[in-house]
């Protein structure tokens, strides 16, 4: 029979081994995840550098562009910015009243607020391709062609649940005492919402808006049928509009290597834009929250 001491020893050893093995798996997965991200960013930038010339950014496609001749993708850059800013503005105009209503007019756990949040979750889950289909059907019903307006509205629908849920989360964190202090001074609900709650939650609201903006900038599936595509810079709401995701998508399918190179360059531009927005979100989130009342 083994002595008591050796039994304890071997058990302890086994537990130590389990700990080491587990730690190894944890570290391996974290390293793998970090590796994947760096591979994505590095491979895109590495592929795109040869094609990333200034003319890509400052010129629209010239004649024979899709056969590899000169030109750039200014049309898609401008189009993407137009469509995502417009969409975010529309989404904001719907989302702000919703979150104000949810958080200042309704009671915290009221039935109605739960229902509205539930439906926002449902909308959050709907894939952007379905929004694209819905937008396309609506567009036909209104006898509209694929245009900046239609694309903008569709992306606004995609952004709406993301924006409202994110803003809702930050507004919910505003301390009740602050609101009560405002009410006790005789302020109405609207005044409290406008001057106390929104002011206090401003950093969160701005970062939520930027997150939604990034989503709108990168969403390709919803504009596939609704925004169309054009080689010119869009100047009116009823003209079709080019977007960066679709520019990448179409150019990558081209049989000409020069055009494919441009897809890589367009991807670099889009990635850099998203990276910039992501960093800006972090920076503003930190900077603006300094003056918040905790």
């Amino acid at each position: 029979m083994r002595s008591h001491q050796t039994v304890v020893d071997s058990r302890l050893r086994r537990r130590r081994t389990a700990e080491t093995v587990f730690r190894f798996f944890l570290l391996a997965s974290v390293i793998l995840v970090s590796l994947i991200l760096s591979i994505i960013v590095v491979s895109i930038l590495w592929k795109s550098l040869p094609a990333l010339k200034l003319s890509m950014i400052f010129k629209t496609p010239g004649t024979g562009y899709y056969l590899g001749k000169r030109g750039g993708i200014l049309n898609a850059i401008v189009g993407s910015i137009e469509i995502s800013f417009g969409a975010t503005l529309i989404a904001l105009m719907i989302a702000l009243p919703i979150v104000i209503y949810l958080n200042t007019y309704l009671k915290k756990k009221s039935f109605l607020s739960e229902i509205i949040r539930l439906f926002l979750d449902v909308l959050w889950g709907i894939p952007s391709i379905v929004y694209g289909v819905f937008g396309f059907l609506l567009m036909l019903m209104c006898h509209l062609r694929a245009s900046l307006l239609a694309g903008m509205l569709t992306i606004a629908l995609v952004e709406l649940p993301i924006l409202s849920r994110a803003m809702d989360e930050t507004i919910r964190l505003v301390p009740n005492e602050l609101k009560e202090a405002s009410y006790s001074l005789g302020a109405t609900r609207w005044q409290t919402a406008r001057h106390v709650v929104l002011r206090q939650a401003l950093p969160g609201l701005i970062t939520s808006t930027l997150i939604a903006l990034g989503r709108g900038l990168g969403d390709g599936a919803s504009v596939l049928f609704t925004a169309g595509y054009t080689d010119r810079i869009t100047t009116s709401l009823l003209q079709p509009v080019a977007t960066l995701p679709l520019a990448i998508f179409f150019q990558l399918n081209s049989p000409f290597p020069e055009v494919q190179q441009r897809a890589f360059a367009s991807a670099a531009i889009l990635t850099l834009l998203i990276l910039f927005i992501s960093l800006l979100t972090r920076f503003l989130g930190r900077k603006l929250s300094r003056h918040r009342i905790k």
Binding site: L37, I40, G218, P245, F264, L270, T271, S278
Partner: peptide, 16 residues
Amino acid sequence: VLDLLAGLPSVIYGMW
């Protein structure tokens, strides 16, 4: 890092 991964457009992932 995770935020950035979540924010990258799907067309970028597709190209990758």
